[in-house]
Design a protein around this nucleic acid. Structure first.
Lengths: 117, 117
DNA sequence: GGTGGGTGCAACCCTATAGTTGCAGTCATC
DNA sequence: GATGACTGCAACTATAGGGTTGCACCCACC
């Protein structure tokens, strides 16, 4: 019953990924760079809603503003999806889940061994 | 900008994993089988709050009721954490993230190639 | 200079949900 | 049979968060 706390990044990332609209944003930004207005045009929500989601995603590290290209001084801010946080999260979840299942396997083995005698 | 929808299991699992209290429950149930009352005693929340969390976790497949042991007919219901959903989620997140990063790498390559001439 | 596209901030609904208390039922033990 | 431990359901509060509208600003272009 040791309540060893889980890294805060896990809950932050999971919270960011627990929303359908944010996944639509992410998959869109995973295939091309887009601005908030672009996304608002493609999705059935307002630009301000998109902006809030982008804020959440950016602070979770799942999205980055593409570096302000000097060629276009236009105010348009474009975003793209970043995979590294997903990879880190996946690795952590995988090891955690493996630990749980190993414990269950051990219990099962013990039970079977006791069954034999 | 193809808005290809993401499997519902992903958002369900992420939502279940986006909560600190649920992680405390999960880590506890990952190291030993416990009942709702046990958890309520170990954590600073009421038993009913625990029960609600267990319901969420169970419907996400992250937790299972240990089969009613015939040796003890007591009404106590014990739970344990299940790792398989975490493994599935990890695999999906990993491939998704890899796709995003591959695209970024390609863009970078193209930019560098253009830089050369 | 006016107009249109893009951005940011703030106030505001409204639903979902984490948490609580309270009560009823069930099973063991004394 | 009464007491205590466990479970389940229901009502309620309160906060977070997804979504909206509205306004102000900046920059480009006509």
């Amino acid at each position: 019953m040791t309540v060893n706390s889980v890294p805060a990044e896990i809950t932050t990332l999971c919270a960011a990924l627990a929303e359908g609209t944010r996944w639509e944003i992410l998959t869109a930004l995973g295939s091309e760079d887009l601005s908030a207005s672009d996304l608002a045009r493609a999705l059935p929500v307002s630009r301000q809603a998109i902006a809030k989601h982008l804020q959440v995603l950016e602070s979770a590290g799942l999205v980055e503003r593409t570096r302000a290209v000097p060629e276009s001084t236009s105010g348009s801010v474009r975003y793209h999806a970043v995979g590294a946080p997903l990879a880190r999260l996946a690795a952590q979840l995988e090891t955690i889940g493996r630990g749980w299942d190993r414990r269950l396997a051990t219990i099962k083995e013990v039970a079977e061994a006791r069954e034999k005698d």
